[in-house]
Design a protein around this nucleic acid. Structure first.
Lengths: 145, 145
DNA sequence: TATTGTTATACTCTATAACTATA
DNA sequence: TATAGTTATAGAGTATAACAATA
């Protein structure tokens, strides 16, 4: 007879946790008038400016056609700048603005406060190992802002 | 000026990892002629039989209307049994069959072999803490097979 | 001709509502 | 009348394909 696996599948463990984390994020983002994609874009551009929209899309694991409305909206509200590159007028240079960084930082602070509530159940050692391993396993995977 | 957060958001860490895990699972499931929902249903019924389809749907975080086609398919292939309850002929008693367990175990073994490849980068201590914390954080969240 | 960004279209997935049968 | 399951419809989200501008 086949032996029972000693642990659940990783995806089966991660799915409900991620679902709960996203559900907790959405009201916070809504309070800051941000969509999840808007927040992901701001977070990515806060890490680094981008030379093309396609590069940004790939960096966050999205389709290039999918983020256009998001970029339009963020630009209209002054959260990002989108300038044609003088050297190649096909491409759009993307950067976050001070206002964009402010709204992103405010939302993120509130999100992480909620996360800290969950992590409070862990010991300092558990927390340290968990976050380190998570970053290690995630590192190298594509996309995901 | 606002201070930078000392860590990424948890959802931002989990998303690319889960995406990669699912992407790795799909070809394995396809090779066993299973959809992700089919696999999730078999895994749930392997843990415990269910008295109603609604209960199963809630257990895996799905809509009750969403799993009907999946149940039809699994039943046709002899992977689950679905009997009207004699005490209340509205409800369907759900249970996995030996054949269903076999295909689920085979797919799961292959999936976890792939996962072990990822986890191989961890020390025994890291692995132990990571999995324990993951189960602890996931525990209490609803759904997710 | 190849590439960036954009728009238009089609498709998949999911949720909502309406229906049948039991109770 | 209320509930389990089912079916039908509609909506959201996403991907595919076609297009305009630039190189």
């Amino acid at each position: 007879m086949p032996s029972k696996p000693p642990r659940p599948d990783l995806a089966a463990l991660l799915t409900p946790l991620l679902r709960a984390l996203v559900a907790a994020e959405l009201p916070v983002l809504a309070a800051h008038d941000l969509t999840m994609w808007g927040y992901v874009v701001l977070s990515a551009l806060d890490r680094s400016s981008m030379r093309t929209q396609a590069a940004l899309a790939e960096a966050i694991g999205a389709d290039k056609t999918r983020i256009i409305r998001t970029l339009d909206d963020l630009q209209e509200r002054g959260f990002i700048e989108r300038h044609p590159d003088p050297d190649d007028r096909r491409v759009r240079l993307l950067a976050i603005t001070a206002a964009g960084r402010a709204v992103k930082d405010a939302a993120q602070a509130e999100i992480q406060r909620g996360e800290e509530h969950r992590l409070a159940a862990l010991s300092a050692e558990e927390r340290r190992v968990f976050l380190r391993v998570l970053m290690q396993l995630t590192h190298g995977e594509t996309g995901g802002g």
